[in-house]
Write a protein that binds this DNA or RNA. Structure first.
Lengths: 331, 331
DNA sequence: ACGGTCGTTGAAACCGGTTACATGACTGAG
DNA sequence: CTCAGTCATGTAACCGGTTTCAACGACCGT
């Protein structure tokens, strides 16, 4: 048996579809007996409105498109959780379209969103500004997260510079002078900002930074440390561009018998739950909050429509734990 | 400027909307010159088809609804990742609707899906069978995950019994005889199955199980251990119904100076990434794979339509690590 | 020259809702 | 008693696509 439509309900209740629609949407101008007949018919038929059809005629879907890069576990779930918290509180659903395998062009994913969602949340730290401008559907209100482009779009950015600077200052305060940075993937804007700000903050105090490549994966953190050891390099502090790599580095240091934090201080970025358990010093991002704020910004844009708030910065916060705190017991 | 519609394209290319639609969908019966004119018009206008309208007329949305309880971080992201992997490989998007605050009735969430998605993935370990039957939209193909109901619906279940039994056997092999189980939330089917199977497997060998309440949160794991210690209870093995609680328990044991695994062996369930880092013995679920299989099952159902595969079991696997392995170094 | 076939095209119905507008009954005021 | 003003209700247009079907012209064989 096919699903009941509004016409079936109208027929059964002996009224026009207009009246049914009115009752369903809580319009006031329907008489009591008519309303009852309709409500009965709805119940008897188990009628559920067809959201797609409604969206089409109302030009409103009550859904938000979420386009994310291939994020590592904790980060992904946290940001989606935050987005969902805000979205569902305000009556919206989330339509997910991860751009897996970061290489894939986002254009397809973004185009598929037209007619499906009222607005777009796009996190694309890897994409060049112009590619982004090309791919962004013009008619769709969007909030950009941690992207390069800055073309009048509302956007929310993590303050990578403040976070990286805090780590640099912390290392300096500990008296470290032989500092290594394990960087994130090449094209990633967050990684670039972190690396640049970190090196700059140290350079101000005459400290040079040794830069090693990484790709945000745990294994690349391991590789970086192993390379340092193989070279016999001298270093007393490591800042990894994210927690994952820091965790890899921590493991490698331990296996090599290097005392953390006594010989080498270590810090990451993100503050994923694992970081707390491992006693990793890091920069707390409050990922869920970031997602929540992005959705809030987008919905304000959609509903208010008036003052498009430009760029919002999301401030992170240094969390000192065992891997850089000589006083603390190591987790 | 409003978004271009198919009529705008037709007008510009001097053809009917039918021809435009044909070109867009790759129909063969369009002459070369006409096709070119239309393609030019599409390009010039930056036309993108309206997915909502197309869905309505095709009665097909290319989206799957995902309704999940309030899962803890890793579990959530892993299962969504797995679902997305399969869904997007087969051309579908995911529409997310977490039932946060587990108490909330799923009926609303499920109803909102009608007309938006082609099929439904529902994980609801907390919901009673009859409530579920009532809430499930009749016209929507669905795959149930770890639910009680078994009403002809396709479903995929985690084999909790096998996992719990494996832990029990492992503890027995270690010679443990004073065994504690920290249970999951009351109404949760997974928690119930794990607790029952665990106690049963031990009982066969004449070992009784001390049962403590928990709610899958880390803090409830801490609380359980603290309660044991306060009572001065004698115990040499703990099986927590999930990793989160096991991690809480591990912390509490360490703080109390109790040797793990020498004095007390510890195991969890799920194998979240943290478990590996902490050296926690656990039952590996391959969460992403679970999600992937669920989507695959649903899509087979949708596309094939023929043989509705009934109930599928997803087998977990015991992973022995430091918290229960006397030989292994403790992580 | 004629009828049949084929390939190309457009008109219009349809998907399932919402809503502007018309209609008609009823009410109260003048 | 009449006329304006409510109020409840129905009709039909519309949202933006897909698809059926009929029309049309070109081409073919005879």
């Amino acid at each position: 048996m096919a699903e009941a439509t509004i016409r079936d309900v109208a027929r059964r209740a002996q009224v026009s579809i207009a009246s049914v629609s009115r009752v369903l949407n809580g319009a006031s101008n329907v008489s009591e007996p008519t309303r009852c007949r309709i409500e009965d018919a709805v119940r008897e038929l188990g009628y559920v409105p067809h959201a797609g059809a409604r969206s089409l005629s109302m030009a409103r879907t009550n859904a938000l498109g979420v386009v994310l890069p291939d994020l590592h576990g904790e980060f992904f779930s946290e940001i989606v959780r935050g987005m969902d918290r805000e979205a569902s509180a305000r009556g919206y659903l989330l339509l997910l379209s991860p751009l897996h395998g970061e290489s894939e062009r986002p254009a397809v994913a973004l185009r598929a969103m037209r007619g499906r969602v009222d607005g777009l949340l796009l996190m694309a730290p890897q994409i060049e500004a112009d590619a982004l401008a090309l791919a962004l559907p013009s008619g769709l209100p969007s909030v950009l997260m941690n992207t390069r482009a800055d073309m009048g779009n509302a956007s929310i950015h993590l303050d990578n510079e403040a976070g990286a600077r805090a780590v640099a200052d912390h290392f300096l305060a500990l008296g470290r002078r032989h500092v290594v940075h394990i960087a994130g993937p090449d094209g990633n804007i967050d990684a670039q900002e972190r690396a640049a700000a970190f090196a700059r903050a140290l350079a101000v105090h005459g400290v040079e930074t040794r830069l090693l490549p990484g790709d945000f994966s745990e294994s690349s953190g391991v590789a970086a440390v192993e390379r340092l050891l193989a070279e016999g390099a001298r270093f007393d502090a490591i800042f990894a561009a994210n927690d994952n790599m820091a965790i890899g580095a921590l493991g490698a240091l331990r296996r090599a018998g290097i005392a953390v934090p006594d010989t080498v201080a270590l810090a990451g970025f993100d503050d994923i739950p694992l970081a707390r358990h491992l006693g990793l010093t890091t920069v707390r991002v409050r990922i869920a909050e970031l997602g929540q704020r992005a959705v809030s910004l987008l919905l304000d844009l959609l509903e208010g429509g008036d003052a498009p708030p430009g760029r919002i910065d999301h401030a992170p916060e240094l969390v000192v734990r065992a891997t850089s705190d000589p006083a603390g017991a190591e987790g």
